[in-house]
Write a protein that binds this DNA or RNA. Sequence first.
DNA 1: CTAAAAGTGTGACCTACATCACACCAAATT
DNA 2: AATTTGGTGTGATGTAGGTCACACTTTTAG
Lengths: 186, 186
Amino acid sequence: MGHKLRQHIEQITPLSDAEFDYILSHFTPRKYKKHQFLLQVDDPVRNDFFVLSGLLKLYHTDAEGKEHILQFAMEDWWICDYQAYFNQTNATLAIDCIEDVEVLCLSLQNRDKLCSELHKIEHFFRRKSNGGYIAMQRRVLSLLNNNAKERYEQLLAQYPMLFQRVPKTLIAAYLGVSRETLSRLS
Amino acid sequence: MGHKLRQHIEQITPLSDAEFDYILSHFTPRKYKKHQFLLQVDDPVRNDFFVLSGLLKLYHTDAEGKEHILQFAMEDWWICDYQAYFNQTNATLAIDCIEDVEVLCLSLQNRDKLCSELHKIEHFFRRKSNGGYIAMQRRVLSLLNNNAKERYEQLLAQYPMLFQRVPKTLIAAYLGVSRETLSRLS
DNA sequence: CTAAAAGTGTGACCTACATCACACCAAATT
DNA sequence: AATTTGGTGTGATGTAGGTCACACTTTTAG
């Protein structure tokens, strides 16, 4: 079987062996343990992460110390504080591991290099970004439209696997509901 | 002064006269009057719209008939039901005019043609999409983090001009608050 | 193997915001 | 000029979901 990254890119655009090797050479593999941080608030954001295995969360901690989860990421997902990454400023979001994790790291420099050298990679990232935008928009709509129970059921329907791997406290922080209220819904 | 679209694209990438003329030839100009629809639910989504002048809203109407506004768009903004546009399915969102409007229409075919012929246009749209993703993510965070008053003040700080052009009812529908509550905040 | 920490459920109570109902005013429309 | 329509404010009341407090169980770490 091919490399996970290759399979992932080829869902959008085919690659030759040489192209893929070249692309892969711009990524750095790394491993992290459960509870380790990939990114902490105020860190410079050096990399975007492509997840090979494991589970992570991207979140913001507010003034009262409450966590708000923007994204979970598992196999085949990308995760990053993109605002800070693209503007090369310091992180306002944190990323850490819910499970042990293997990722491929891509610096902004290498991303831009790949995008300018390989038109099909620029195309790939455009498509990815479009998809992400649409997903975020759907989430905004669901926050505007739906009550706690409806949001919970939508998430359950869309990512049933998540509920086996993630504590309810985190599901609540993702849905924007208190842990207690979530517990009374299900 | 140059064309508004040209200025807009050149914020990201420079263009020759010939390139711009070629690009522009893929857009169709159109005008709409206040209250006219650019897109209704269940319409096929033929175009993405670049706004030259005027003001529009992109919104969803829920089962109880309540409007939830996903986006306002004014000069220099793009507006579309992207989910339906990119998948070439029918609209689930509607777009209509809050003021008289001039737009440039771009079909998906022409967008893809431009993107594959001109690497710099693919780059432009990637950058735009990245920006849109980040903006949506910030909005999700603000819905999770902040109460009605805080969201109202953020919006006011970010787009003060909006409050001169848009009735409070629509601001409320954008913020996810009832009209009455909004009226008691300010 | 034991102690601490993390995860979960549930009752009692509280509050931010929704809903309903009405009044008033400004701007279209006839 | 008269009349409908759209926009806005405000009181009274209802409710979804938050907060606090506690108990119990499971996992993690020393």
